[in-house]
């Protein structure tokens, strides 16, 4: 039975604990909560949760903001089919992508990289603040959120400056965050320096209403197909790309299929009187 102790803690929704936690403290998997009262309390628990959260709010550090797209356990907002009693749980947003810059000190090698980047930018007559929205250090990886209009210039510096020498662009990938108003579409660029044996990520955001990002093909020819793929799947227009056409989907395909507002496109499966909805239309935990 002892090996089940962490499991009975699982009964209690993680969100409650998540609410009482600051952004970078712990991850849900690390927490070893004491065994809490299981099942029957669950229904009566919801109002209690918020009072607990408030109580903590007054004493502890500031809570992360409410998660923009998630509430409850089944992604159901106001009694729309969620019969679990967990519908009023508040999920806190701990996504570092939506947070601010990571304050220094960073891990040693990333400190070095950060200094090198500052020096290279200075040499090019620019500064960190001019160039980057924020710098995120998370799980041993550094991501520079580059201001959109600066991207082409930054890519050139990252490739050519002797301190940096990021010779290879490993890829460009889109991510769609529909809840982030004004910066829904992200393009993440992975660079690799063989000279210094280190990596860096560049991230650029653009709004849905103006999905333009400067292309880096003229600096990194290898980004050619990756940008076409990102255009194909997310509709991000890479300005200056030599031939921004669809690459994976047929040329006449409507829409950009890997955006979050594009349905999965599955069909219900019928067999002997039973119908199973495609995965995106089933009730699911979020």
């Amino acid at each position: 039975m002892s090996d089940n102790d962490p499991q009975s803690g699982k009964q209690d929704p993680d969100e409650v604990e998540e609410a009482a936690r600051t952004r970078a403290e712990t991850s849900p998997v690390e927490e070893q909560s004491a065994a809490e009262a299981p099942a029957e309390e669950a229904a009566a628990e919801a109002p209690e949760d918020e009072s607990t959260a408030e109580a903590l709010d007054t004493t502890g550090p500031a809570l992360p903001p409410e998660h923009p797209s998630r509430r409850g356990m089944f992604g159901a907002y106001d009694g729309s089919g969620d019969t679990t009693g967990y519908g009023r749980l508040v999920v806190r947003d701990t996504n570092p992508v939506r947070g601010g810059s990571t304050p220094r000190p960073w891990p040693e090698e990333l400190e070095q990289l950060g200094d090198d980047v500052s020096a290279a930018l200075q040499e090019a007559g620019s500064t960190d603040a001019d160039t980057f929205e924020k710098v995120l250090v998370d799980r041993g990886q550094v991501t520079f959120f580059v201001k959109r209009e600066k991207l082409a210039e930054v890519a050139r510096i990252f490739r050519d400056d002797p301190l940096l020498r990021f010779e290879l662009c490993m890829g460009v990938n889109g991510v769609h965050y529909p809840e982030e108003t004004g910066r829904e579409l992200h393009a993440v660029i992975q660079l690799l320096s063989i000279t210094h044996n280190r990596r860096v990520n560049l991230e650029v955001t653009c709004p849905d209403s103006d999905p333009h990002i400067p292309s880096i093909v003229h600096t990194y020819p290898s980004a050619n197909w990756h940008e076409r793929e990102t255009y194909d799947f997310f509709g991000i227009l890479f300005d200056g790309h030599p031939a921004l056409t669809r690459i994976q989907m047929p040329d006449d395909w409507p829409g950009h299929p890997q955006r979050k507002d594009y349905p999965l496109g599955g069909i219900p499966v019928e067999y002997k009187g039973a119908t199973i909805a495609p995965p995106d239309e089933r009730r699911a935990y979020n």
Binding site: S27, V29, N95, P96, V97, R139, M170, V175
Partner: peptide, 11 residues
């Protein structure tokens, strides 16, 4: 299981 928010690139 839940995975803490964030993004990584693993080569």
């Amino acid at each position: 299981f839940r995975v803490p928010a964030g993004e990584v690139y693993v080569p």
